[in-house]
Design a protein around this nucleic acid. Sequence first.
DNA 1: ATGAAAGCGCTAACAG
DNA 2: CTGTTAGCGCTTTCAT
Lengths: 334, 334
Amino acid sequence: MAEVTLKDVARASGCSVATVSRVLAGTRPVGAETARTVREAAERLGYRPNHVARALRRRATGTVGLVLPQITNPFFPALVRELEHALHAAGRAVLLADCDDDPATEAARIAEFLDRQVDALLLIPVDERRSREAVADAARRVPVVLLDRGCGPGVADSVAVDNAAGMQLVLDHLAAAGRRRPWFVGAAGTTTTAAERRAAYEAGAAALDPEAPGRVELGDFSVAWGRAAVDRIWPSRPDAVVCANDLIAVGALQRLRQLGADVPGEVAVTGFDDVPLAGLADPALTTVRQPVTELAAEAARLLAERSAGGVPSDGAGPSRAIRLAPQLLVRASG
Amino acid sequence: MAEVTLKDVARASGCSVATVSRVLAGTRPVGAETARTVREAAERLGYRPNHVARALRRRATGTVGLVLPQITNPFFPALVRELEHALHAAGRAVLLADCDDDPATEAARIAEFLDRQVDALLLIPVDERRSREAVADAARRVPVVLLDRGCGPGVADSVAVDNAAGMQLVLDHLAAAGRRRPWFVGAAGTTTTAAERRAAYEAGAAALDPEAPGRVELGDFSVAWGRAAVDRIWPSRPDAVVCANDLIAVGALQRLRQLGADVPGEVAVTGFDDVPLAGLADPALTTVRQPVTELAAEAARLLAERSAGGVPSDGAGPSRAIRLAPQLLVRASG
DNA sequence: ATGAAAGCGCTAACAG
DNA sequence: CTGTTAGCGCTTTCAT
């Protein structure tokens, strides 16, 4: 398996390595006849460009680092899939890092990817505050796009669903259905998703009932918390449990059923994200669908634009925050 | 952000780039005093080795390609997570590819990773037959480890759960519970998991009932198929529905409940894999847990061993097929 | 133990 | 349009 190099192709096709490079990389115009000869020789020898050498010379590896909190979070696989496809279509390979929801690990992975000369970074920050420094450092070196969650204003370009709009869709729907005693079950962490969804509930729930904005329980984004939260709020007989994500909602659904509550007759339950689990719950979960494909496409586009200039995120123009509209999926749970 | 190179450190520490390289890469013994000076200078200047240049020179990138059928398959995220951790611990970065369950895409991704000079490949083949050629080609170039699914004998090292043992655990459990009319609901595709689980059912089900091995319905690994399969087998009143994976089992569970069947009183339902969804189903699914962490650790170990020789998979000794013991999780569904 | 020098395979000036 | 010439940043002989 002696690797075939440009030099071999040059020798076989009787021209210089420079010409071969130009033909094969398509960098500059080349005589049609020469090009054919070269391509033939390359084909015949089974030449494959060495991306490492190319990267060293071009100072661009054609890779982007994707750093996320936890791939086992059920919302992420679909996003990763779409990102992988979008980036591959743009000719870039994806280096993946899972941070175990730990900002220190996240910072280490980001640094490692930078050492590996990624052209850009796609980050889903673990935490709005504690990720900020590492993200800002990274954004000083390469284009960075934040996904799904933010990291403070102006740190880098970001793409996310419009959480406030999504929560408003839920509230409008509940209002139209005549629900008047909603409770919000959210997450206490400092992710932007947790904060924005909660804030949107507090801002919009008064339309159902003046007391509603105060009815908030905060835990984490888990099924277990959903179950536990129901035990805390059920005594006050809510007619709607508005959950900050689908995992919480699934837990709430389970516990409500154990308690013999009638969903949705007696109480509605809503989620957020539309993870695969949501459609499988019983009753199927009314939730807010994130436009995953579009999120990935926008992220890829931002990355391409920043990369075109070859500048780090903070080097060219103000950072852009793109918010995509969500969609309400009304299913059986409310 | 002018990048600090070895040359800069050499200048700052008053010695040659060779010495600096030796100190920082730890390749060869170096005077204690010199080493200290160099390290100090490197620290002070914020030197970070350029992995691309290093890779070109060493002919090793420190990356491994992970190619899988579909990250949205709920069994994979946990596996990806463990693999990422195990490989990172070994100092290797992970390039990720999602093939959309398509062998042609898979072949293309593998080739692309090879062009990018990955040191090794971790593959979950899309299909036992149709992936074989691309896998065999790859195994001729770099160490390859197959995960979860096989690709024909002797093609490359492989690590997977012992599917036959897992199915036997299920059958033993059902037999002990007095079940005598089991049906198997599996997948028709040509993945090894589909084939092995089905074969193990056919081999072991006679212990429950001589007719049982023939009671097999084949579709695909999906919730929808689980639902559909129940409609086909329910008229013959099985007392156990043995499913080839958890998705099928969840579908079966849903449909059985719609039909008013009593699970597990009237009919038991079992799955395979123990995806997160399994514990959340109602009733919670009795299933076979795959030892995900151990699978990842074994895969990383095989990779490291093969890589130590720097040889492709078929270059050193016979290929090894490692099978890990599964564990039965008895939950409420049977 | 250290330094000088030769590349890894490729691309980008710069000439012609 | 094409060839010649320098390297990219690093590791590794080969001397000393």
